[in-house]
């Protein structure tokens, strides 16, 4: 009898790559870019804001695709992608909100405005806190995956509707990237782009670690289910 060995991926190079990009991004953010004309140094939080917002968009995109994938293919791997990305997305949304609030205070003088973009982000945050609660409070593994997928898909359709519902309020959120191109100094554009990449890498690293942990968790659950006799569980 030959025993096959299950291989565990042990590489950590992607974590170190992420760290390197982050140090570069921080350098560009603080040292390389000049102060903004009116906002002075306070505009440096913009790189954090923009980076986490971009990563958030991608990460929630993963949640949506993975949710459809789960309902279609019914493999728990899809659901793990949805779970990991939703968790990381919620964290990134928190970053977007916190950095936005601080920036709003220095730039506009008020902590909070009921602008469509900001309000929609807040709703998104509440929505995904509810999503994580739903995951946590549904005990059956398969049912949890199903319910979470349904919620994520409905949520995806809600977000643009929310945006347009709030749109009738006066919008004061600055549009940095318009249809006429990017509205920033070149060095700031570089810092912004590197910051975006850094946040994407951070999100990716987070998701990958969470994915592996969730897979381990599911496997432990599977063993536990198997150790119990079928009659017990019926």
């Amino acid at each position: 009898m030959t025993k096959r060995q299950t291989r565990v991926r042990t590489g950590t190079w992607w974590l170190w790559l992420m760290a390197a990009i982050w140090v570069v991004a921080l350098y560009l953010n603080f040292i390389y870019t000049p102060d903004a004309k009116y906002l002075l140094s306070s505009e440096r939080i913009f790189y954090v804001h923009m980076g986490s917002a971009t990563a958030m968009t991608f990460v929630y995109g993963i949640t949506f695709v993975a949710s459809i994938g789960y309902l279609w293919r019914r493999r728990l791997a899809w659901d793990r992608w949805a779970a990991a990305s939703a968790e990381v997305g919620t964290l990134l949304t928190t970053m977007v909100l916190v950095s936005g609030i601080i920036w709003g205070r220095t730039a506009w003088g008020s902590w909070w405005t009921w602008d469509p973009t900001i309000t929609t982000t807040l709703i998104l945050w509440v929505l995904f806190l509810g999503y994580l609660l739903l995951r946590d409070w549904t005990d059956d593994r398969e049912r949890r995956a199903r319910y979470a997928s349904v919620l994520a898909i409905v949520a995806f359709f809600l977000v643009p509707l929310d945006y347009y519902a709030v749109y009738f309020l006066k919008s004061i959120h600055p549009a940095v990237i318009t249809t006429h191109g990017v509205n920033l100094a070149p060095s700031m554009v570089l810092a912004m782009l590197v910051s975006m990449v850094a946040f994407m890498f951070l999100a990716a690293a987070w998701i990958l670690i969470r994915l592996r942990l969730l897979a381990a968790q599911d496997y432990v659950q599977e063993i536990q289910d198997r150790v119990r006799t079928p009659l017990d569980s019926m």
């Binding site: 299950t6 291989r7 565990v8 942990l213 897979a215 381990a216 496997y219």
Partner: peptide, 13 residues
């Protein structure tokens, strides 16, 4: 996580 994965891999085998 890696540690856990390695132990689970043994179990899986």
């Amino acid at each position: 996580t890696r540690h856990l994965e390695q132990e689970l891999a043994l179990l899986r085998d």
